[in-house]
Amino acid sequence: MAAFRPIANTRSATGIPTAKLAVWWLLVSEIVIFGGVLASYLMHRLGHPEWANYAVHTQTAIGATNTLVLLSSSLTAVLAHQAAQTGDGKKAAKFLLATIAGACLFLCFKAYEWHGEIEEGFVPWTNGFWAFYYTAAGIHASHVIVGAIIMAFVAKDAYAGRDLHRVENVGLYWHFVDLVWIFLFPLLYIAK
């Protein structure tokens, strides 16, 4: 069945496009989810100075590389948005594919990193630090996966020239995922 679009969806009493408004509210709900994890982690980290001894074992180099990968993928997301604004759906789709590639690269690094850590015996139930490390990064990684899947759908439509406004919306989500990592990286890796 073709997508049915009610009149309510086509109105814009605030002047903000409806879909974009919804993505912003989605991000509001996501901010408090990650806010809850990070606030809990921060309180515990401050209360347990000895966690610095565990944080030593995180691999800052891989974390930094992943930061670079995610930031670059945000750049391609912006370029996709720019292409979509000029109406070039095919170009937008290509940039979205580049963003998906960034997401996959990020996940590969993450898998390699976790593999090494688990080999060394650092598992989620080792202690509080590792529990937060895996939970926070794991929730983030699940957002990376979901974002990549959604971008694949958006790219498919954009390639056919349909629903180009979605390129910007999925980009908003992707920047948010990126931003969360910007908080996770110093808190989990740099703070030793």
């Binding site: 509001v28 408090v32 989810i33 990650f34 809990s40 509080g128 529990a131 939970t135």
Partner: peptide, 30 residues
């Protein structure tokens, strides 16, 4: 929306405590 987020995170943590043996909330495990 603004209040449930931390509990969503907490529910994930509690689920891990129950099933993986992590130690977010159980004082016996720190």
């Amino acid at each position: 929306m603004a209040s449930v987020g931390p509990l969503v995170a907490g529910a994930i943590m509690l689920l891990f405590d129950q099933n993986l043996g992590t130690n977010f909330f159980d004082p016996r495990r720190g």
